[in-house]
Simulated scan of single mutants.
Amino acid sequence: MAARDYGQYCGVTRALELVGERWAMLIVRDLLVGPRRYGELAAGLPRIPSNILAARLKELQEAGVIRRAPRSRVIVYELTAYGRELEPVVLALGAWGFKAMSDPREDQVITPDSMTMTLRTAFRPQVAATLPATAYAARLSATELLIHVDGPTLAVTRDHVPVDLAFAAGPGIRRLISGELSADRAIATGAIEVLSGREDLLDRFATTFHLAA
């Protein structure tokens, strides 16, 4: 039985009963990046109490959204096929929520999985298909990601390989993705720091990843 029962017969109601509890959709968000051990989920959601994480995982399993699976002698949590159907919902929520975002507060963190999903939300495959393949290394607060764009295909990993452009950004990444700052202006103001590679490729990045604010 769902932890929350709204007493209405409706698809939206049923969806909220299954994944509408606090933290549930953030667990789904992180599992859309890939399977995670319990400790990895806890590390990616540093404010979640351990009893709440355990409860949400149990509820999501009972709902058929996630499952436990053995991987190299450890147990990981992963989305089921039914759970993966939530990806366009999560991306749409991310795009909608982006419109109401400002710069992060001091107590807010950026995690690798949250930034990966932000990039997947902002990715414009139709635009990327017209541009040369490009590899970016992004240092975002304490998060370092390899962003590889090849035509309409996006891969975001934590590998360390040669890239065309490496850059560091704090809150400026939001202003770049939203179009509030141009690539040239972001570099000039220090919102984005180019670490290596061609500076002009930051404009390609901003063209490839865009969310209207």
Rank of each mutant, 00 (worst) to 15 (best):
V163A: 11
L145G: 04
A135C: 09
L131H: 11
G94K: 03
A135V: 12
T111A: 09
R120T: 02
M115K: 00
L119G: 02
V161H: 13
M117Q: 10
A138W: 11
T118M: 12
V109R: 07
P162G: 12
V149A: 01
L119C: 01
T153I: 14
L140W: 15
G97E: 14
L146E: 03
G94R: 07
V109K: 08
L165P: 11
P104F: 07
P152C: 07
D103C: 05
R105C: 05
G151Y: 02
K99M: 14
A133K: 10
V163T: 12
E144P: 02
T116V: 01
V163N: 10
A135L: 02
T143Y: 03
H160R: 14
G151C: 00
T134W: 05
P162W: 02
A137L: 10
L146Q: 08
A100H: 12
A166M: 12
T121R: 06
E106C: 07
A129D: 13
D164G: 15
L93D: 10
R124K: 06
H160E: 14
V149C: 00
L154A: 02
L146D: 04
P152A: 10
V163E: 08
T116K: 00
K99A: 15
R139T: 08
R120S: 02
S114R: 15
R124G: 00
T143R: 02
L119H: 00
L165R: 09
A133T: 13
P112Q: 08
R158N: 10
G97C: 02
L146V: 06
F167T: 06
S114Q: 12
L146G: 01
P112L: 10
H160P: 05
Y136Q: 03
A137W: 04
A142W: 04
A128I: 00
A95S: 06
S102Y: 01
F123T: 04
W96A: 14
G151T: 00
D164V: 08
F123S: 06
K99T: 15
V127G: 07
T116P: 00
T111S: 12
E144Q: 08
E106R: 11
Q108K: 14
T153V: 15
L119T: 01
T134M: 06
M115L: 11
G97Q: 04
S141I: 04
T157F: 04
T134H: 05
A100M: 11
T134D: 05
A135N: 06
D159M: 05
D164P: 15
V149N: 00
V127C: 09
R158L: 09
D107E: 15
L146A: 06
R124V: 01
L165Q: 09
Q108V: 07
A129G: 09
R139N: 09
E106D: 15
E144G: 03
T116M: 00
F98D: 04
P112H: 08
A100K: 12
A137G: 06
A135M: 04
V156H: 07
D103L: 10
H160T: 13
D107K: 13
H148P: 05
D107T: 08
E106V: 10
L154Y: 12
V109D: 01
A137R: 14
S102R: 15
D150E: 14
A100S: 13
A95L: 07
M117D: 09
L165V: 14
F123E: 05
T157L: 06
A129I: 08
G94N: 08
M115R: 02
V109A: 08
F123G: 03
P125N: 01
I110K: 04
